[in-house]
Simulated scan of single mutants.
Amino acid sequence: MAAPVLTAPGCAAWRDGKRYMWLTAVMVPLLAVVGYGLWHRTGLGVHWWITPLFVFVLVPLLDLTSPADPVNPPEEICPALEEDRYYRRCTYLYLPLAAVGLVLGAVAWSGGHLTPLGRLGAVVTVGTVTGVGITTAHELGHKRGPLERWLARLMLAPTAYGHFLVEHNRGHHVRVATPRDPASARLGEGFWRFWPRTVLGGLRSAWDLESQRLRLRGGRVCSPRNEVLLGWLLTAALFGSLAAVLGPSVLVFLVAQAIVGITLLEGVNYIEHYGLARARTPSGRYEAVTPRHSWNSDAVISNLALYQLQRHSDHHANPTRRYQALRSFEEFPQLPAGYATLLLAAYLPPLWFRLMDHRVLAHYRGDLGLANVQPARRAALEARCRRAATVRSSASS
């Protein structure tokens, strides 16, 4: 079936060649269901690893062997493109499929028939489903419609990350690329140091932001209008219902898969703004957010699987712009690969530093003072910059 042709006054007709490829994201929960079915039929726990192999092996291989996709829809076409409800339904579809995958994983765990390999695979598989689900919730949670906001809340419930909607929209988007933002990784900061800082910092920030909002409106902090408490209530209802039906032992599985999902999401956060910083203006305030404060990638398969989250600069410039209309520009900071590939590197700090530190310094033309630097690593990074400058000076002379 060919994609519909879109037209606009003064613009040539345009067709989205990736229209039906946007369903790539739902392969993640679908494969979890397939993995459960194969395990149930054969008893082999190895089938629980199909989803992680797809996300962390096949997608990176396809990214690395496929040409990048820098194509942007014509700006005149974007209003019609954003109004096409097909693209919204692609995101809506993720939630019910993820719910099925979560329930099947919980049933398999509580049945007591999983081998240790199968138990670990079930946790990683379902955690991957719910982790990618947070990126789906991210797309939905930036929209103003009540349906999309509620779907985002429900998608965040399996990872107990309901506060993400508050912190991301009203915290991260305001403080991005500054030392005040728990979701902006610093140059020289390893992922496993970043993880507790961003998880705990994001939680504190969300509570403070929501408490302040309610007090300004004359409401009570502990009330059903508190978005953070609402998110936690949805998680408690989900976990409690599954525990009531399947037994309390399933809570171990639910907590473990939530940790995997959170780690996947925070790995993406770590990549998106690593080392990038907004300068202070003469007034002492931070400069406005611009495209140079986010890392980007045109790796095509990762973009299809993550609703084009890798076009992150345009997302920060236009948070309500729908994923199918996000744009790529050559002058934005560019990653060496897509998120699916770089996640594994991010989890190995020495490899990550080797891949990315010199790119951050090149972005700032060797001026470490312009970057967002981990304080404990500043002296070592300054010494490295001096050595590099000495080598360049010797080479030029």
Results as ranks from 00 to 15, higher is better:
L265A: 12
I259N: 02
L309D: 09
T290S: 08
L370A: 14
L342T: 05
S328F: 15
Q324L: 08
E272A: 14
Q310M: 14
L344C: 04
S294K: 11
A299D: 12
F332S: 05
V300N: 06
N372C: 11
Q374S: 08
A380K: 07
T341D: 03
A325N: 05
P333F: 01
A256F: 01
L335G: 04
T390D: 15
E272C: 01
P336T: 01
L335N: 14
E287Q: 13
H316F: 05
N269Q: 13
S283E: 15
S313W: 00
P291E: 01
A383I: 06
P282F: 05
E272G: 10
N269Y: 14
Y339F: 14
R292L: 09
F353R: 11
N318E: 00
Y286E: 06
P350R: 05
V391Y: 07
S393R: 15
D314K: 02
Q308H: 12
E266F: 11
T263P: 03
A380M: 06
I271P: 04
T290D: 08
A346H: 03
R280G: 00
E331D: 14
T390S: 13
L265C: 07
M356S: 07
A340P: 14
E330M: 06
H363V: 01
L264K: 06
Q308R: 13
W352K: 04
N269H: 14
I259H: 00
D357R: 13
A325C: 10
L368D: 10
S328A: 15
G366C: 09
A317I: 11
L335V: 01
Y323I: 00
L309M: 14
S328R: 06
S393V: 08
V289F: 00
V360S: 09
R285S: 14
P375K: 05
Q374T: 04
L343K: 01
A380T: 07
Q310N: 13
R386H: 08
Y270C: 05
P333V: 02
P319N: 00
L309F: 15
H315I: 04
I262M: 10
H363M: 03
P375H: 02
Y339K: 07
A317R: 04
Q257V: 05
T290E: 10
S302C: 11
Q334C: 07
E330I: 01
L344A: 12
R280Y: 05
Q310I: 08
G366M: 08
S328I: 02
A345E: 08
A317C: 13
A279L: 08
R311D: 03
L276D: 03
R386M: 08
A288K: 10
A380D: 12
F329W: 05
A277R: 15
E331R: 14
Q257A: 00
L355G: 07
D314P: 02
L361F: 11
D367Y: 08
A346R: 06
S393Y: 11
W295A: 09
H316C: 01
S302L: 05
A388D: 15
I262D: 09
L361N: 09
P333I: 03
P336E: 00
L348R: 09
R384M: 12
T390E: 15
A371S: 12
R278T: 12
F353A: 13
A258Y: 00
E330F: 07
P333M: 05
V268S: 07
D367H: 12
A379P: 00
A256I: 10
H315L: 06
F329A: 13
S396F: 04
S283P: 02
